[in-house]
Amino acid sequence: MELYLGGRAQGKLALALQRYPHAKVFDETCREENLSDADVVIWNHLHLFVKTWLSQEKEPTQIWEMVADLLDQHPGMVVICDEIGNGIVPMDQEERRYREETGRLLCKIAARADKVERILCGISRRIK
């Protein structure tokens, strides 16, 4: 499994598609049941999933179970997530939680990943 991190519009998905042109991209707009025949699955916009799950009052442990489940189902998956935690800590509790829990989830995914890359201006730097 690979994890790609970076700010908005830095070319994370483009890089993943360049490496895996036949991959199926899965994001907040599509359902996961049509992924069974995919060779490689790219899971885009992980942060938006976290946001939705938190708004549905899912606990971090439940979130991790769902994520771990998906990672188990698609061992070669490329997970893409925006880096959202590098700012002033928001006053709003929900916004704060969103950043914090996305960060913590990324630590767990990164620990499991074979490869972690950070992408800026389309240029990737492997950090694991």
Binding site: E83, I84, G87, C107
Partner: peptide, 8 residues
């Protein structure tokens, strides 16, 4: 240093 929840 690092951002929110980064494991710092």
């Amino acid at each position: 240093l690092g951002g929110s929840g980064c494991g710092k």
